[in-house]
Design a protein around this nucleic acid. Structure first.
Lengths: 164, 164
DNA sequence: TTTACACCTCTAACTATTAGAGGTCTTCGC
DNA sequence: GCGAAGACCTCTAATAGTTAGAGGTGTAAA
């Protein structure tokens, strides 16, 4: 094994981990990426308005609204309209929402970035160079993930959104 | 007494009645004209949105909102956000609101218009002519009204609108 | 008479929701 | 495999209500 091969192996481990992240979430935790992201934001900021969430996660308010609709329907979050400013709505995690979130997979990508940045700069550069090479070689035959959580069906519309 | 004097007396009775209408409302019933108008609209239409009220009474939504704030604070009306369309808010009369409204003075002006229009045209014309004359003579030394209702202070801000 | 206060009213800005349209990805039946 | 259906994401535009801010009226009290 030469150096490149070692790098390649390491990279594959990282790629596998980050790559499987979203699949784990959507298939096993019952939470999609945006859903998880929003729930984390709520946990992090506590009582938080829809607008703030939208800013934080860089989505439109409309998008956040519809995602919250789904989460609320599954009773993972709930909304409380502000009494100070009736235009505003505060989102909260329900008990079961917080519970599920605490058992949900960590944001691997962020972890990885943090770790990557703790390396020496020449290490980062080397890895980056390898990465670009590897990208050309990669034809990933990948690995299966084991189930983690189950919050309910992601791919099942039980007709909760009754039209007016 | 000649004819004009009779007319004058009759007119004064009408004028007194209509003139005192708004004063009665604001000073004795504890409800201003717009407040009463909005409450009547709610009673008439039942579960009704702010927008509909605004249309009905020809005021802006913003104005209706602030008036409803005051009425709600006095517990004469309450709001319920629609579950069908969370943008919408339905206004309702509280029990005491309905009660007070039922005992509030009638919309005298409308009554008067109706009655006036039921007269013969020549009668209307005669009265109108008299009216114009009377207007020049009138230097009303008017009558006091007796209290009717008391819903609480109109001219007292008990600091309910706490700022954010 | 001046001042303060309660109220009315508006426009403009703001917050959230909904409608509607277009997109991805997965699953299911042929 | 391939097409259709379902669940989801995302957006812009429209809509509903609220709030900020500014200007006005009328009453009451100093």
């Amino acid at each position: 094994m030469n150096n490149y091969e070692h790098v390649l192996v390491a990279l594959r481990r990282v790629i596998r981990a980050t790559d499987l992240h979203s699949k784990r979430l959507s298939k096993n935790a019952g939470l999609t990426g945006p859903q998880l992201l929003i729930m984390r934001t709520i946990r992090e900021l506590g009582e938080v308005t829809i607008g703030t969430i939208a800013d934080k996660v860089s989505l439109s308010q409309a998008t956040v609204t519809t995602i919250l609709d789904r989460l609320e329907h599954r009773q993972l979050v709930y909304r409380v309209r502000s009494t100070q400013d009736k235009r505003k709505v505060h989102a909260h995690l329900t008990e079961s929402g917080a519970d599920i979130l605490s058992r949900a997979p960590n944001p691997l990508q962020e972890d990885f970035i943090k770790k990557f940045q703790s390396l020496h700069e020449w290490e980062q550069n080397m890895i980056l160079a390898s990465l670009q090479r590897v990208a050309n070689m990669m034809d990933a035959d990948d690995i299966d993930a084991s189930p983690v959580l189950d919050v309910g069906p992601v791919l099942k519309d039980d007709g909760w959104k009754e039209k007016a």
